[in-house]
Lab assay of single mutants.
Amino acid sequence: MAAGGDHGSPDSYRSPLASRYASPEMCFVFSDRYKFRTWRQLWLWLAEAEQTLGLPITDEQIQEMKSNLENIDFKMAAEEEKRLRHDVMAHVHTFGHCCPKAAGIIHLGATSCYVGDNTDLIILRNALDLLLPKLARVISRLADFAKERASLPTLGFTHFQPAQLTTVGKRCCLWIQDLCMDLQNLKRVRDDLRFRGVKGTTGTQASFLQLFEGDDHKVEQLDKMVTEKAGFKRAFIITGQTYTRKVDIEVLSVLASLGASVHKICTDIRLLANLKEMEEPFEKQQIGSSAMPYKRNPMRSERCCSLARHLMTLVMDPLQTASVQWFERTLDDSANRRICLAEAFLTADTILNTLQNISEGLVVYPKVIERRIRQELPFMATENIIMAMVKAGGSRQDCHEKIRVLSQQAASVVKQEGGDNDLIERIQVDAYFSPIHSQLDHLLDPSSFTGRASQQVQRFLEEEVYPLLKPYESVMKVKAELCL
């Protein structure tokens, strides 16, 4: 049975990233139509530049190519590739079939990587351009969430054990800070992308030097003109047959890092959902379990974690691919890159769409948070109580021993009897502590235990987050809708 299948058929496997999760716009960027249309555009740009620099290419040939950029006979191309065992030459023939007058000058002087690699770089750039505003929107939604809850005390956790208090907004800023680093890295790697350009079979530009009869300047002009037509500021000066596969490492490393950030955020949300302090959106008709109707599973956060793990592992592909590119190139890269580049971007696209949807509907339960604080705060307040007693004339050592005994009794009630923490009640009825009984409410005010959390939130948002989001103001209103 021949390899390949009808990918629109229910009898043929289709990647869930495309069929179930990723956005239509990201799927289109990695589609065959987008790819092969870009090949034709690159052939047109090459012909236009070659004509401008004096090669015998007519206006009629150029116009014929322009008129057929979208006229792609995919069936013919597939048949040609089956016959020739070469995808680029299959599309040269297919393009030439609908451009008979231009057929002889299509791909003039070029090698397969002229269309293959340059198209990949265009796709990487455009895919990054799709991700950047999506990530900015996630940051914006979380920034709104953090600002609104900047002063809401909550129990902090280290080692997932109760620690000092923080605020809900401050905790959210930990998430935002990681995503801001990801946004900066995505922008950097996007701006650092260079075009492969017009380089020939081993990167020496020998074929173009021959076409222009040894004119170095025209060869350099050709490279520059096509690079500018493709919208790049610069091209690699040095290439082998391909652009260095280190570029793929750079791009997928940034995406993998984004995956790590999203995994951490969504894990926190899942843990908070278990504590009943916070939940992701839950639709009115949504079913959490087929057997347990009360369940409210954090399905979206779980999906993000599941896909983020996949995204983090994909960076190993370009690392290994770059390491086995012998001399000017081997074909070890080809099949692998067809999979890992598309999957990385479709996965990143999915987790950003999902995280935006989550961040637009996060639900906080202040009463649950308050109750958990009441359970733990008495123990945390013991040092403040000791200091207040010393100020009232008591002995630190005597007070410490009193607190120690009462704390152990209260802990026994919590752990052995399943009761509430009654340390404060014990202190309130103990005559030894009568000098500070009137101060206990103040000493137990949760806001006095959150330090500068709310001020940190305000400063972080104003100095770091809002300036970073400013270039994306025009796209901030787009909502994230999930079908599944």
Rank of each mutant, 00 (worst) to 15 (best):
I287T: 13
F236T: 05
E343W: 02
Q63F: 13
E417W: 08
N71C: 11
A411Q: 08
K284F: 13
E213R: 14
H107R: 01
D120W: 07
F145A: 04
N297M: 07
L352M: 15
Q63W: 10
D215Q: 14
K199E: 01
K246L: 04
Q456C: 06
C483S: 15
D144A: 15
R372A: 05
V429M: 15
R404M: 08
L222R: 01
V168K: 01
V363S: 04
E50L: 07
T321A: 03
H159T: 00
E48W: 03
I139R: 02
F345R: 04
M389E: 05
V219A: 06
L468N: 13
K295M: 00
P162S: 09
G54F: 07
A110P: 08
L142P: 05
L341H: 14
V247I: 14
L314C: 13
V478G: 15
A388R: 06
G169W: 03
K415S: 06
M387W: 00
R303S: 02
E250A: 11
A18D: 15
A235M: 14
D192N: 11
T119C: 14
M389T: 00
L319G: 03
A150E: 09
I106G: 01
K479Q: 15
D420R: 05
S447G: 12
D32L: 14
L124K: 11
L355G: 03
P435K: 09
V138S: 13
S447R: 14
S15P: 12
S290V: 02
D215E: 11
F460S: 02
M89R: 00
D333V: 02
P56G: 11
S412H: 15
V390C: 10
S140Y: 15
A335F: 02
D6V: 09
F449I: 00
M278G: 03
I427L: 14
Q416H: 09
S207M: 04
G54M: 09
T204D: 03
A335Q: 04
V88R: 00
A163E: 01
I403P: 04
S140N: 14
R14P: 12
C98A: 10
L314T: 06
G393W: 05
K101T: 14
K295G: 00
G156T: 03
V262M: 09
F379M: 13
G394V: 11
L406C: 09
T166C: 11
G418C: 04
R149L: 08
N421T: 06
E383N: 01
P318R: 01
N357A: 11
D120M: 05
E80V: 13
G418I: 05
K199A: 14
E250K: 09
K224W: 14
I373E: 03
L84P: 01
S67L: 13
P318W: 04
E48M: 09
N357W: 05
P24V: 10
E280G: 03
